[in-house]
Simulated assay, not measured.
Amino acid sequence: MELDDAYDNSGHIADAAAYPDAWAEAAADWRGVESAVGRARLNLPYGKAARERFDLFYPAGRPAGLAVFVHGGYWLRFGREDWSHFAAGCTAAGWACALPSYTLAPEASIPAITAQIGRAVAAAAAQVAGPVVLAGHSAGGHLVARMAMADAPLDQAVAERLRRVVPISPLSDLRPLLRTSMNAKLGLDPSAAAAESPVLGRPRAGIVATVWVGGDERPAFLDQARWLGTAWGCPVRIAEGRHHFDVIDALRMPGSALLGDLLGG
């Protein structure tokens, strides 16, 4: 359809097909190490559906708070097991980090997935005291931005603990996706696309939002990041030389600017 190429990341990244296997292998290795030293709690439920599960990784000492990373994949692909290693920067900095899975489209609609992430954040927050910060990539960037909004499906007590949100390469306006072939599986109509678009809402008072995007990403994703920054009046950081698949690598790097925006300091 009209905008398929605009939102096609794999078709414009060298060796794109190698990334999913590399992510899964690195995630399994890191998860194994953290489990062996007793710093991982895996397959924790936040609901009754098969994919309503999250993994929780702890730092060496008492956590400073809880970070949650929500994966992308156009709400159609992947699960928490593919991304465990992206918790490494948070745990090295003294934060616990939760990674949830969610029911994928077309089995679940995007509004239903948004509600699932609200439950996942609440379940993880019940395990870790202190402030809560959220990061998400691509479709996950959309989902964490939704958690920052006034109409987010979050318990009030959890919403009051939410301090910072970092959408990375987010899909912030879902209306263009109506003109892509993937919408046959996403099932968006104009009403749902508008209701689920963070650019058409505002974040809760007191939440610090920072948008990140790779400088070498598709123009559509640069637009999506800038649209959210403009709508929310928040900074948009452009990671020069990074594309859609490697912009998240900074989550693994203690002291990175991206982690600084997520964790504070």
Results as ranks from 00 to 15, higher is better:
residue 133 V to S: 15
residue 97 C to F: 14
residue 51 R to M: 05
residue 245 F to G: 11
residue 183 N to Q: 00
residue 98 A to G: 11
residue 124 A to S: 07
residue 21 D to S: 15
residue 116 Q to A: 09
residue 171 L to G: 07
residue 49 A to Q: 01
residue 174 L to G: 04
residue 5 D to R: 10
residue 169 S to F: 09
residue 88 A to E: 14
residue 95 W to T: 07
residue 92 A to V: 05
residue 112 A to M: 04
residue 152 A to Q: 13
residue 118 G to Y: 05
residue 193 A to I: 01
residue 131 P to V: 01
residue 61 G to R: 04
residue 178 L to Q: 00
residue 13 I to T: 13
residue 174 L to W: 10
residue 224 Q to A: 07
residue 226 R to K: 11
residue 193 A to Y: 03
residue 9 N to C: 01
residue 174 L to Y: 11
residue 87 A to K: 05
residue 20 P to R: 08
residue 258 L to H: 08
residue 53 R to E: 10
residue 26 A to P: 03
residue 192 A to E: 12
residue 150 A to L: 13
residue 37 V to M: 11
residue 87 A to L: 07
residue 52 E to Q: 15
residue 120 A to G: 10
residue 36 A to F: 10
residue 189 D to M: 01
residue 20 P to H: 06
residue 27 A to S: 15
residue 57 F to I: 08
residue 121 V to R: 05
residue 235 P to T: 09
residue 75 W to N: 01
residue 162 L to Y: 11
residue 242 R to D: 04
residue 78 F to V: 04
residue 263 L to G: 09
residue 212 W to K: 02
residue 172 S to F: 09
residue 200 L to P: 08
residue 117 I to D: 01
residue 153 P to I: 08
residue 216 D to R: 13
residue 153 P to T: 03
residue 125 A to H: 08
residue 201 G to I: 04
residue 182 M to G: 00
residue 41 R to F: 00
residue 208 V to Q: 14
residue 256 S to T: 08
residue 175 R to M: 12
residue 112 A to L: 02
residue 99 L to H: 06
residue 209 A to H: 01
residue 238 I to Q: 06
residue 32 G to Y: 12
residue 84 S to W: 15
residue 49 A to V: 00
residue 63 P to V: 08
residue 217 E to G: 07
residue 39 R to F: 10
residue 68 V to L: 14
residue 261 D to Q: 11
residue 94 G to L: 10
residue 109 S to G: 11
residue 41 R to C: 01
residue 74 Y to P: 05
residue 228 L to F: 06
residue 39 R to G: 09
residue 125 A to L: 13
residue 121 V to W: 01
residue 221 F to K: 00
residue 258 L to P: 07
residue 236 V to A: 10
residue 211 V to S: 12
residue 66 L to K: 07
residue 196 E to L: 09
residue 259 L to W: 02
residue 149 M to R: 14
residue 155 D to H: 08
residue 52 E to G: 07
residue 139 A to F: 11
residue 261 D to E: 15
residue 143 L to T: 01
residue 141 G to P: 07
residue 194 A to S: 12
residue 220 A to P: 04
residue 237 R to M: 12
residue 77 R to Y: 11
residue 26 A to S: 14
residue 176 P to R: 03
